[in-house]
């Protein structure tokens, strides 16, 4: 049961990373919108983290799959699929020449993603706490283990 706790810690870290990456992009876009940052810098910064974000998301998703957390996996799947599609169509990067035309849409997309990750974070923390409780209960008496599940 300890490994379950560790697993959830890892999930938590993944989730925080995604949140951070996403938030960073939103900040860059807002700066761009408010003219605090020029578009070359802003788009190169954003583009630098897009692929890492996709990779982290993919790992996160597959980790759920491998560890048989089906529900969480299904939750993650649509975004993973969407990311893959973008990547295949080569539309995942911000187009520096047309940034302003799509600024609103890009921002909206990232805000939605951010809120999704926040929801996910709540779930992850909840499960993390549960698993921790579980493992404590486990240690106390190994009989009524995982009645939660």
């Amino acid at each position: 049961m300890v490994c379950e706790v560790i697993l959830w810690v890892i999930f938590f870290i993944f989730n925080m990373t995604l949140l951070a990456l996403d938030f960073y992009q939103i900040v860059c876009l807002s700066d761009l919108e408010a003219d605090y940052m020029n578009l070359y810098e802003s788009s190169s910064r954003i583009n630098a983290v897009i692929v890492p974000e996709f990779v982290v998301h993919g790992l996160f998703c597959s980790l759920f799959l491998v560890t048989a957390h089906w529900f969480m996996f299904l939750l993650m799947l649509p975004i993973a699929y969407y990311n893959t599609m973008l990547f295949i169509k080569r539309q995942h990067l911000i187009d520096v020449t047309e940034v302003f035309r799509f600024l609103k849409a890009e921002k909206k997309y990232r805000v939605i993603k951010l809120s999704f990750y926040l929801v996910l974070l709540v779930l992850v923390i909840f499960r993390f706490v549960l698993s921790m409780l579980n493992s404590i209960v486990d240690e106390d008496d190994g009989v009524h283990g995982s009645w939660w599940y």
Binding site: L32, E33, D35, N38, L39, T97, V99, F100, R101, L103
Partner: peptide, 9 residues
Amino acid sequence: HGNFMLRST
């Protein structure tokens, strides 16, 4: 719309 690039909004 035209031939240029937007530098800010």
